[in-house]
Design a protein around this nucleic acid. Sequence first.
DNA 1: TAGGGAACTGAATCCCGCG
DNA 2: ACGCGGGATTCAGTTCCCT
Lengths: 380, 380
Amino acid sequence: MASVFPLADLKASVKSDSRPDSWVDTIIKGDCVSALEALPTHSVDVIFADPPYNLQLGGTLHRPDQSLVDAVDDEWDQFASFEAYDAFTRAWLLACRRVLKPTGSIWVIGSYHNIFRVGATLQDLNFWILNDIIWRKTNPMPNFKGRRFQNAHETMIWASPNAKAKGYTFNYDAMKAANDDVQMRSDWLFPICNGNERLKGEDGKKVHPTQKPEALLARVIMASTKPGDIVLDPFFGSGTTGAVAKRLGRHFVGIEREQDYIDAASARIAAVEPLGKAELTVMTGKKAEVRVAFNVLVESGLIKPGQVLTDAKRRYSAIVRADGTVASGGEAGSIHRLGAKVQGLDACNGWTFWHFEDGQSLRPIDDLRSVIRSDLAKVE
Amino acid sequence: MASVFPLADLKASVKSDSRPDSWVDTIIKGDCVSALEALPTHSVDVIFADPPYNLQLGGTLHRPDQSLVDAVDDEWDQFASFEAYDAFTRAWLLACRRVLKPTGSIWVIGSYHNIFRVGATLQDLNFWILNDIIWRKTNPMPNFKGRRFQNAHETMIWASPNAKAKGYTFNYDAMKAANDDVQMRSDWLFPICNGNERLKGEDGKKVHPTQKPEALLARVIMASTKPGDIVLDPFFGSGTTGAVAKRLGRHFVGIEREQDYIDAASARIAAVEPLGKAELTVMTGKKAEVRVAFNVLVESGLIKPGQVLTDAKRRYSAIVRADGTVASGGEAGSIHRLGAKVQGLDACNGWTFWHFEDGQSLRPIDDLRSVIRSDLAKVE
DNA sequence: TAGGGAACTGAATCCCGCG
DNA sequence: ACGCGGGATTCAGTTCCCT
């Protein structure tokens, strides 16, 4: 399992047909497009691709504590222009489609830096988009300079090889069963890959800068493959696709240029123990913590801008503003900060401190949060 | 408010300059690109666009089952359709950028059918993507055939007009305060527009097929505009952008071709009551506060020349000089430069780094800046 | 050993006014 | 337009060190 296959040997093997499927459960060392071109036509069931994102980072970035953010500045993520990136994308997508069975499907993951170009290229090449899937990160890196929204998700595109392809695998019932018996949605919640799962070298540093979480791959593979299927990853990296495929009783093929990544992935996959048949029932992702911010109440109309809130004994009052903050006297801030400030305290739970008029009685705004939460219980 | 402006009249008005800004708070009746071309250059602060996504692709998007069409023709047909859609997208985006102030920003909403093409075109035209924002729907339509994941989100792209544009508005502190004092993320949760909010004709049928929820527009406008700003919507439809802009104390401009939509939007907007100034005050952070230089503290006697400052752990110390600089060892400079230098860092916020003795405890000199600021507030 | 606190980290397109 | 310099800016963890 997970032997390395030099590209030259692969070519000879496939050509001579002496060792059919000798490339299955191996990592092919070589350039992505060249390796794909050496594989047989219509030979894999699903492709998962995590191509370079073309991040186009400027200078360095420091956290507020002045520590340096370890950016993805690897050589393999450098492209001269969008045109160059598009040409690269076209080439590997076309090579992928030849290798993909007509009944197969392809997943590509990216961020706003590249995913729009990937999606448009998929459409230009007559791939048929089935879904775009949002990976919501439970613990994304913050925006340190406060100039944008926290970039808290990545996007996956799931597509069949052409507009008429109908035979792709989608384990609808398994997905539904895993999701408390309601349809699996297009937004998925998972933590980023860290802790024990994150591969580290002897120096203690991460082996690969963009290792994906196994839970994400597990859902992809459980949703769109059958046991025994072959999953190809043309940008194998640290081998998450291979490790999860093996664990879930699927075959894999990896393509990777860099020996360091191949070594790490081989060892990783060798250590994987496949699950038994009984255990191959679908596993669920992490359930969301139901977090409701105060401005959701304002945006949803349960609380109106201009409305007056008071504490339970009407000693303090505040006016609600349209941006979801509250103001009292000259002071303003979140419900928590202002609650603390008017009382002269360091901290305050605004949800239980502030009340609203409901007929003749006062009720804590936390009651309204409960209303929202029960609406959201189905979603999160 | 919300009067209708025929395109011919608009052209005459803008040209003659007889009624400056006569187009503000109106709905311009006409084709999107023609109307945009009639508006003055650099005249609006933010654009929110909800373009059609099936305009040129209706056949292929709505009839995926047609399997009798010749494959080659089918491929060509789709390529041609995407090209037409791309040309349309280029045209209105270019027209939008001319109208947009260099300090403005643009939002475009779409689904996987069109958003990849919109995103790639934005990048091709040198717009600079700030975030992609996911609108997660609490109540999306189910997938009826069980062949895909439930399509439970739409995607918005937020971009500045070019890569170097820096002056766009982002009310970071308001968003954070409204979100229980943590950064607002790129995934937003809102219900789809229905119930009372959904505009319905006399026949009880919905006026517009894709009416967006006001809560979504409210967050867009609160995040990226200031009170009094002009928000342009080139695909005005049922006028959600106009209604929310008016309610939030912003101006709007709508462009719409169909009289039925214009009528519905006009009536809708006329019924909107704008919020008062207090409710519209936006939470701001330190960046918006009056600048106080360190030597003001020295001049006012709160800090005395010769006084010793240290960091919080008394690892470094510096002596205050009469000119408002500080010195340590052979080095001297501003509180920031010296703070950076003694720590061997590139940058340092001297206000929070340096502390002074206050009885037995150490307090940051930023506390003294607050004293100055509150004194100044009384004078203003 | 258990617990508390400091340090470290993650696919990042991350400042702005003034001269 | 460009350079300078003041000074603003982080969330959810995991790991390591010290008591």
